[in-house]
Computed example of a mutant assay.
Amino acid sequence: MDLADGEVVVAVQPAAELVEVEAGRHVDLPIPELAVVPVRRTKRARRLPHGIRVADAGTAVITDRRLILRGRENDCE
């Protein structure tokens, strides 16, 4: 992964998902919690609210400047 001069990796989360909300749909998302990466997984899988889908999944790399998702096909910033 190419980083800018002086950019520092802060954390890596190996199992992250990028979600999309259908256009024109209002969705009540869960309130984010303050947590330290990595987040503990529960045994029960959460269902996404109607109108939200997982667009990609992969490894999230958090730097002091950006969040990068190293996805299945592409990298997203």
Rank of each mutant, 00 (worst) to 15 (best):
M1S: 12
M1Q: 06
V8P: 00
V9F: 04
V10S: 02
V10T: 10
V10D: 03
A11Q: 14
A11N: 04
Q13Y: 02
A15G: 05
A15P: 00
A16T: 05
A16V: 02
E17W: 12
E20D: 10
E22F: 03
G24L: 12
G24C: 09
G24K: 07
H26N: 10
D28I: 09
D28F: 04
P30R: 15
I31V: 15
I31C: 09
P32R: 10
P32V: 06
E33K: 13
E33L: 06
E33Q: 15
A35V: 14
R40A: 14
R40N: 03
R40D: 04
R41G: 10
R41T: 11
R41C: 11
T42K: 13
R44E: 14
R46V: 14
R47I: 00
R47M: 03
L48G: 02
I52D: 02
R53S: 12
R53N: 12
A55F: 14
A55S: 13
D56K: 01
G58Q: 04
T59N: 01
T59R: 14
I62H: 02
T63Q: 05
D64V: 11
I68K: 02
I68F: 10
I68R: 12
L69M: 06
L69Y: 04
E73Y: 03
D75R: 10
D75Y: 04
C76S: 12
E77G: 13
